[in-house]
Design a protein around this nucleic acid. Sequence first.
DNA 1: TTTAATCCTATAAATCTTATAGGAGTTAAA
DNA 2: TTTAACTCCTATAAGATTTATAGGATTAAA
Lengths: 139, 139
Amino acid sequence: MLSKKAKYGLKALIYLAKESEERPLPVSQIAESQKISVKFLEAILNDLRTGGILKSKKGKMGGYQLNVKASEIKMSDIMRLLDGPIALLPCVSLNFYDTCEECLDENNCSIRKVALQVRDATLEILGAATLEELVKNEK
Amino acid sequence: MLSKKAKYGLKALIYLAKESEERPLPVSQIAESQKISVKFLEAILNDLRTGGILKSKKGKMGGYQLNVKASEIKMSDIMRLLDGPIALLPCVSLNFYDTCEECLDENNCSIRKVALQVRDATLEILGAATLEELVKNEK
DNA sequence: TTTAATCCTATAAATCTTATAGGAGTTAAA
DNA sequence: TTTAACTCCTATAAGATTTATAGGATTAAA
């Protein structure tokens, strides 16, 4: 399940992609429009900045805006930054690979093989779902 | 990510499907073979029994065994029983449907549309991954 | 009657999620 | 040059979930 953090982040990014052409938008405005706690959203947008998806401008008239084109931001990128791994198992994660501590034989694990298929299918869909697409599909 | 509970449950079921023809196996034996805490596994197998996947025999010489054929137990069934919803959002869950509390307009949510695609793709794979298949693919 | 099981309830440690609070630093505008 | 409106950083904490552990009631075979 997506965490609230990820959902809030996604909604905020969709709002940003829709509303902002050039000027940055303050957290307070985004939070109000999406009914999100300002302080919580502040932390989320900061994570997205650290992750390279947003850029910020400090001080009065400052705020956040996209750091790259909406067509280049994948839903999988956003989810990874805010929720961590997408895969069902660490041993099939592309970006957060780790062994399963309780695994007795990784090369020969049938659960792993299924998790690999799920990962590939999921990433294909989440990769096609760019922020641009998400905005388009929001009527 | 799969929880340890789900991983343990899956491993235990694979072991049960492989080892047991007719007689039930005690939790202690399964736990030892898979290096799982006996008490924890006890709770897990009980959940699987309540969910209809396992049946149990009490008392001496008792234990757990499959309640239905391995070919009829899907990985998605097991995951639902032990970890709950498979979908990314409650609003696209088949078995645990609920509205997203923070959602302002469900019918018009582009995140939801993607989550729906992911759900369908995931369930297709997890549905094809029956316990029988999992056992086969364990070399 | 003993032994080996499941099954049930309670408790708890650890970790993760979802925040809240306060203030330091930065910048535009008055 | 002061004020107002921002981001950014750290700390704290409540609540939920995960991952167990403990003890004993109940059941059934030997």
